[in-house]
Amino acid sequence: MFKKGLTALLMLLAFSVTAVPTDEIAQVISEQESAWNRGDLDAYMQGYWNNEKMRFVSGKKFRYGWEDTLAAYKRNYPDKATLGTLKFTIKETKMLSNYAAIVVGRWQLTRAKDKPNGVFTLLVEKIDDRWVITHDHTSD
Rank of each mutant, 00 (worst) to 15 (best):
F2G: 09
K3D: 07
G5D: 06
G5R: 10
G5Q: 09
T7A: 13
L9V: 01
L10S: 11
M11P: 02
M11A: 15
A14P: 00
A14K: 05
A14F: 12
A19H: 07
A19I: 03
A19S: 12
V20W: 01
V20R: 03
P21H: 01
T22Q: 14
D23P: 01
D23Q: 12
E24T: 10
I25A: 06
I25H: 00
A26T: 10
Q27I: 03
I29L: 15
I29K: 05
I29G: 02
S30L: 10
S30I: 01
E33F: 07
E33R: 11
W36S: 00
N37M: 12
N37G: 08
R38D: 14
R38N: 11
R38T: 11
G39F: 07
D40E: 10
D40Y: 08
D40L: 08
D42M: 08
D42S: 15
Y44F: 15
Y44T: 13
Y44E: 11
Y44D: 11
Q46V: 08
Q46F: 03
Y48E: 02
W49F: 14
W49R: 09
N50L: 06
N51C: 03
N51W: 03
M54V: 03
M54P: 00
M54C: 03
R55D: 02
R55M: 12
R55H: 04
V57D: 03
V57Y: 09
V57K: 04
G59W: 07
K60V: 01
K61V: 05
F62M: 11
R63A: 01
Y64C: 05
G65R: 05
G65S: 03
W66N: 06
W66Y: 14
E67H: 06
E67V: 09
E67K: 15
D68F: 02
D68R: 10
T69I: 02
L70H: 11
A71H: 02
A72R: 14
A72W: 06
Y73C: 04
Y73W: 06
R75A: 08
N76H: 02
N76V: 01
N76A: 06
K80V: 14
A81I: 00
T82I: 06
L83Q: 15
L83I: 10
L83R: 15
G84D: 08
T85D: 04
T85S: 13
K87L: 09
F88R: 09
T89Q: 13
E92Y: 08
K94I: 13
M95F: 00
M95A: 05
S97Y: 04
Y99V: 04
A100W: 00
A101K: 13
V103R: 07
V103A: 13
V103T: 12
V104N: 07
G105Y: 09
R106D: 13
W107I: 04
W107L: 04
Q108K: 15
L109A: 05
R111T: 12
A112Y: 01
D114V: 07
D114H: 04
K115T: 15
P116C: 13
N117F: 06
F120R: 13
F120K: 13
L123F: 03
E125I: 01
E125H: 08
K126E: 12
D128E: 13
D129K: 09
W131Q: 06
W131P: 02
I133H: 04
I133Y: 02
H135P: 00
D136K: 05
D136L: 06
H137I: 07
H137A: 08
H137D: 00
T138E: 00
T138G: 01
D140S: 08
D140G: 07
